Amino acid sequence: MKEKVIFIGASGFVGTRLIETAIADFDIKNVDKQTSHFYPELTAIGDVRDPDTLDSLFESCSTVVLLAAEHRDDVSPTSLYYDVNVQGTRNVLAAMDKHNINNIIFTSSVAVYGLNKTNPDETHPVDPFNHYGKSKWQAEEVLREWYGRSPETRSLTIVRPTVIFGERNRGNVYNLLKQISSGRFAMVGAGNNYKSMAYVGNIVAFIKFKLQNVMPGYQVYNYVDKPDLNMNQLVAEVEQSLNKKIPSVHLPYPVGMIGGMCFDVLSKLTGKKYAVSAVRVKKFCATTQFDATKVHQSGFVAPYSLSEGLDRTLQYEFVAVKKDDITFVSE
């Protein structure tokens, strides 16, 4: 008999790939406020903000994987970050306690470290700069408090991924790859800033690895596919994958920020959301490089290199003929 696990928030981008990766080895139930496009038969409708729906779904489960989160840059009102990411975590843990479930894997974020830090590892001081990062850190604190009440029997794994990309995702990396591949791309700054990234096929493989190796204790891991690329190297990867020359245009950082602020004003005036904003320009030009030594010394072997993940994504999105138009929106 397969071990029964509950994935919370697995109708989205990462969760869909996690189900695909783990379904052969586990008896999976997906709890989400939206039905899964690909696994509706495994999905029960539930919301982490509603404790009653959680209580009714957690019976006979051994491990919970908590993926659900408010994560976009433009969530309004900002209280939603805390209602979902923090109070939602409390509600999940309360339901787990009622059903004597002692194992949880939680997807946090490298956003807890803040911007422009020097290759932080898991022991680096936190300094989140936005509500998403702050709410994820608060959720981690809630989880550590829960673990600390019974460390002999409980298992807590916190995974802090960097930005995740892959097939079907519609987030910042996809938007960047689309702009680069179109040839209408303007680099803001010199392009020497490094970007840690994670291919979705690897992050879900790591979560499955932790599901297969549950033991009492507390562990936290940064997840990054190494080696990191700077922006100029990323452009070169796109050129190689698509076999095309990408024109190189560089804009000074102040010009890029002014452009982002103009889009912010336009967004407020029109009520529309745009792909360009001051926050996104700031994030684009920042060095977001993180130490992932711990995860790659844990016994886990990533099934794809970063270059392979980029190539698979680029070929799927911009070369292959698609069978459907199902996509997932994220950052």
Rank of each mutant, 00 (worst) to 15 (best):
V159G: 00
R149T: 14
H99C: 13
V110I: 15
H99T: 13
N91K: 01
E152C: 06
G88F: 03
V159P: 00
H131D: 15
D127I: 09
A111T: 11
T153P: 04
G148R: 11
E140M: 05
A94Y: 09
L143K: 02
P161G: 05
Y147H: 15
R154L: 08
A95M: 09
V92L: 12
V92T: 14
V112Y: 04
P125N: 05
N100F: 08
T118V: 09
I105R: 01
Q87M: 13
L115G: 04
V110N: 07
W146R: 00
A111M: 13
N116I: 04
G88Y: 05
E122A: 12
M96D: 03
G114Y: 04
T107C: 15
N91Y: 06
E145L: 08
G114P: 01
Q87N: 13
Q138D: 14
T118I: 12
N100W: 09
D97N: 03
D127H: 15
L115S: 04
L115F: 08
A94D: 14
Y132S: 02
E152T: 11
G114A: 10
S135G: 12
I101Q: 02
M96Q: 05
M96V: 10
F106Q: 13
G88D: 05
A94W: 05
R149W: 06
K136V: 09
A139I: 11
M96H: 01
I158Q: 05
F106T: 12
S150C: 12
I101N: 00
H124F: 15
E140G: 01
E145S: 08
N91T: 07
P151Q: 05
Q138S: 15
A111E: 14
T157C: 09
A95E: 04
F129G: 07
N103M: 01
R149S: 11
F106C: 14
S150R: 15
V159H: 00
V92M: 09
S109A: 12
N116F: 04
H124M: 14
V110E: 07
P151V: 01
V142Y: 06
K117G: 00
R149I: 10
I158W: 06
Y132T: 01
L156F: 05
P161S: 08
I104T: 04
F129E: 14
H131P: 15
A95H: 02
H99F: 10
K136H: 12
R144F: 06
T89S: 08
Y147S: 13
R149F: 10
S135Y: 11
F129W: 08
T107K: 10
S109D: 04
P128E: 07
T107S: 15
Y147N: 10
A94L: 13
L115Q: 05
K98F: 04
S155E: 10
W146A: 00
I101L: 09
K134P: 01
V110Q: 04
N100V: 07
F129Q: 12
R144K: 13
Y132Q: 03
N119A: 05
R149N: 13
N102M: 12
P151Y: 02
I158G: 05
A94R: 11
S155P: 04
Q138W: 11
R154A: 06
S150P: 11
R144N: 06
K117H: 04
N119D: 03
M96A: 08
E122I: 14
G148P: 01
I104F: 03
T118K: 14
A95Y: 00
H131G: 14
D97P: 00
A111Y: 10
R149A: 09
D127P: 13
Y113K: 01
Y132A: 02
K98T: 07
